[in-house]
Design a protein around this nucleic acid. Structure first.
Lengths: 297, 297
DNA sequence: CTTAAAAAATCATTTCTAGTGATACCAGTG
DNA sequence: CACTGGTATCACTAGAAATGATTTTTTAAG
């Protein structure tokens, strides 16, 4: 069994396809097939279901567990011998689209310059999906909105955010219950931390049957809100970014309602890879003072 | 970096020589040299000092840490896919010579039949040496006489023993202080659990300047005691084994003096290899009732 | 049911490289 | 000094990883 085979195996499972894995590892698809096949005959078990996407069999999941740990140890070992002990390998991050658009770019730019030997993979998804991917080891860390996620995960605050009500038309005062019942909300699919906030908010205001449209992308939401389709609840910083492209109007939520904290979810520390270790060192602590909000009309 | 290279590297460090490692791994010395050389150029650091015995450089020790873990994970992964989930790889045990001669043979015979895919390495040494080798990961487990060994190690009782005074001539009653001061004791080098017992015993009896001869092997000790060179303090079960070959006379120690408990020292459980896991399952609990002693004259 | 597109398997070929055995080299030791 | 017990070097071979072209299979759409 070669480390290389395990690396390829992991890439196939993570990317869901033989050819995608081949691209990521800068080799050819037939080579990926050969490695997987060799593993399968060596272990005497089918490891992958050739579907679309490719999925690990029960036996495959068992191997995956070892593959991840071995490949990670291998990367860490190599890291130790790089000039300056530079970490090496890949860092697999997850993030909600909102964080991805606003907070992550500076962080990741800085990070990838500081550690040129690390390749960063960023995957977006909802809080629920990401947490699960961290738990299974598919991701090293994920930026999510959550307050607790079980004992096996560690959550570290990174950004304090303020959610604001976003509309395509000027907002004079906070809409009443009746108006909220009429106006649709545009949000991500269930499992997104922000969406949860919307639902809680509407429930608290006793809005009977709120209409919530589900969109798969942040751009779509912002575009449609700008076009007057409805309201959205988004981080102030995100909205600010879109101001140049769309005519957006925001209104702070009453009281502390809008306060959310983005955290980094990881497995408990002892199992961190060198890559994750240095990443976490480089992540700044959240400013106590919140980002000031201009309630532009 | 190949798992195979790490396996070879580990074997060289553990065996202290390129050629010995080659033998153990059923390959040739030039191949060992090639693998080590490749690792060294790949990592850009000298890993081994070519002395006699070969010893790891600081860089080598760093790699060793990873090598051990990766090879162990590899073996465990393969184990999962063996028919019946049989563990596979090697189990590295340490033991004092006395245990090795008496208690281990049945245990190991049984074990090696039960798990035909595991190769057992048994290395003898003193309690102190063995404990240290378990701590550094050179051994998976060691049979020693100790009561505590630090938080990082786990100790599990396996045999209750009784040390007896052994002589080449009939012993009527327990020798007095004066006689003990005249008669030399034959013992292992410092660090052996039994030797410690002798020293404590003599100190308690206020024997002024006891003469203790150091011998490197159990056979030598027993042989010389049989020839009347002096006294020894050995487990009753060990002496029993030698009765056929030598004319030995034993006497129990007064009170509870002679009671010793052999324990298995391992690292704390979470880091056990599959091989160690099944070994520990198969080790019987110590009989509460002690092995009966015939005080043959 | 048919078809087109995407993905995985197969295959012939090339390029490396792990493993081998013979030999050269380099201590220490009597 | 030669001898012993080790490591390095070398030429060679068998086997395997990687490649690119091609065929087969799967999936989704018409």
């Amino acid at each position: 069994m070669l480390i290389r085979s395990l690396e390829i195996f992991r890439a196939v499972v993570d990317s869901g396809s033989f050819s995608a894995a081949a691209d990521r590892l800068h080799t050819v698809q037939s080579n990926v097939t050969a490695h997987i096949k060799k593993l399968e005959t060596e272990l005497g078990a089918r490891l992958l279901e050739r579907r679309n996407p490719v999925v690990a069999t029960p036996a495959g999941r068992q191997l995956l567990h070892y593959a991840r740990r071995i490949v990670e140890l291998h990367d860490d070992a190599l890291s130790r011998f790089q000039p300056g002990g530079e970490p090496l390998g890949e860092l697999r991050l997850g993030s909600m689209e909102t964080s991805a658009a606003v907070h992550l770019p500076p962080l990741l730019t800085d990070f990838s310059q500081r550690w040129p030997q690390l390749s960063v993979h960023l995957h977006t998804g909802t809080t629920g999906e990401l947490i699960e991917e961290v738990r299974t080891g598919q991701l090293d860390a994920a930026f999510v909105v959550a307050e607790n996620a079980g004992d096996d995960l560690a959550l570290r605050p990174v950004f304090h955010e303020r959610l604001v009500l976003v509309s395509g038309r000027p907002l004079k005062s906070f809409p009443g219950r009746a108006e909220l019942a009429r106006t649709p909300f545009l949000a991500f699919r269930p499992g997104c931390g922000y969406r949860t906030t919307i639902e809680v908010l509407l429930a608290d205001m006793k809005v009977a049957a709120p209409r919530i449209h589900e969109f798969g992308s942040l751009d779509a939401i912002v575009g449609c809100v700008g076009a007057g389709m409805g309201l959205a609840l988004l981080p102030a910083s995100t909205v600010r970014q879109y101001r140049r492209r769309f005519d957006l109007h925001t209104l702070a939520l009453p009281g502390d309602r809008g306060k959310v904290t983005t955290v980094i979810a990881t497995l408990q520390r002892p199992s961190w890879s060198r890559a994750l270790e240095v990443f976490m060192e480089g992540v700044p602590s959240p400013d106590r003072a919140e980002t000031p909000i201009r309630d532009a009309g």
